[in-house]
């Protein structure tokens, strides 16, 4: 079983969930900033932090929603949000494939950059009394466009959001996707991916990624390495978006691929012909 196929299915499923109210099976409503899945309220952890700092008040319902998300990502690995859920990451992965041929400009952002962005975002949210990241967030912009941008225009001035099947027979039915202006940041990210530094946003800049890196640092799920099977071929380095997490494991220093920055995307597991890498839950021995 190829993990990449599984991951793509999950990524597409997330997009379908966000589109679900427009497609007529509303099991999810809202966006990845704050949404409701089967009636359970879920709020992005950074959004909750920004809100608390900006509004300078505690809102119980939202904090519970953020706590649910926090606990979930602590268990499955913080940046599983990035690798498996976030649509910006999915689009970025596609744009990254162009980088090999079109990456004209080289740029090496420091690995601590995203933590600096996170710190600046939190301080600014407090000082300016506005949830600063949610204001410009490409994740917010793209999921807002999905959640509210799909409008089925009946041509008589009325729009239906749910009734797709009933309207198809009518000749004046047009489907329009209203794009929000804040998608400009997404375009910028994709251009950076394709022409400058692949994963410039997702791995080096995004404060949501930075926060989830911290959340997942001690997560029980991760990629385990079997040092006896590993032949140091380096295939895993070629497919990993954050190769520095592999270095200590492949060198034989530790038994796990470093958690935190790793999004458990499992590209390395797919790439390992020796089957030295595998997804594992918890560990009895951290060092082999």
């Amino acid at each position: 079983m190829k993990w990449k196929l599984v991951r793509r299915c999950v990524q597409v499923a997330v997009i379908l969930l966000i589109l679900s109210p427009a497609l007529g099976f509303g099991i999810f409503s809202g966006t990845l900033i704050s949404g409701e899945l089967f009636g359970v309220e879920l709020t992005d952890v950074l959004a909750a932090l920004d809100y608390t700092l900006a509004a300078k008040t505690l809102t119980a319902g939202m904090l519970i929603g953020a706590a649910v998300v926090l606990v979930f990502y602590f268990f499955v690995g913080g940046r599983v949000f990035c690798g498996w859920v976030c649509p910006v990451h999915l689009f970025s992965e596609m744009a990254r494939t162009f980088n090999k041929r079109f990456g004209f400009v080289s740029l090496r952002p420091p690995r601590w950059q995203k933590y600096a962005v996170l710190a600046v975002v939190l301080v600014l949210s407090f000082v300016a009394s506005v949830p600063v990241f949610e204001m410009v967030s490409p994740i917010g912009a793209v999921t807002r466009a999905m959640a509210t941008g799909l409008r089925i225009d009946r041509g008589d001035g009325s729009t239906v959001v749910a009734d797709v099947a009933g309207g198809v027979g009518e000749s004046d039915l047009t489907v329009t996707l209203v794009l929000n202006g804040t998608l400009v940041l997404l375009m910028f990210i994709l251009l950076m991916d394709a022409f400058v530094k692949k994963a410039w946003w997702c791995e080096y800049t995004c404060p949501v990624g930075a926060l989830y890196s911290i959340v997942g640092r001690k997560s029980p799920v991760g990629v385990r390495i079997d040092h006896d099977a590993c032949t140091d071929c380096g295939d895993c380095f070629g497919v990993c978006p954050v190769p520095h997490v592999l270095t200590p494991a492949v060198k034989g220093e530790v038994g796990w691929v470093q958690k935190g920055d790793c999004s458990n995307c499992l590209n390395c597991v797919d790439a390992c012909d020796e089957k030295a890498l595998a997804l594992r839950f918890w560990s009895r021995a951290r060092r082999l």
Partner: peptide, 27 residues
């Protein structure tokens, strides 16, 4: 200013409005 501090731009209200009265501010 209070509204700008509290709104996390999740667009749930935009989606909930049955008349499409509520729109989202852009760039």
């Amino acid at each position: 200013n209070d509204f700008l501090a509290k709104c996390i731009r999740c667009a749930k209200c935009v989606q909930a409005c049955p008349y499409d009265s509520i729109k989202t501010a852009g760039l």
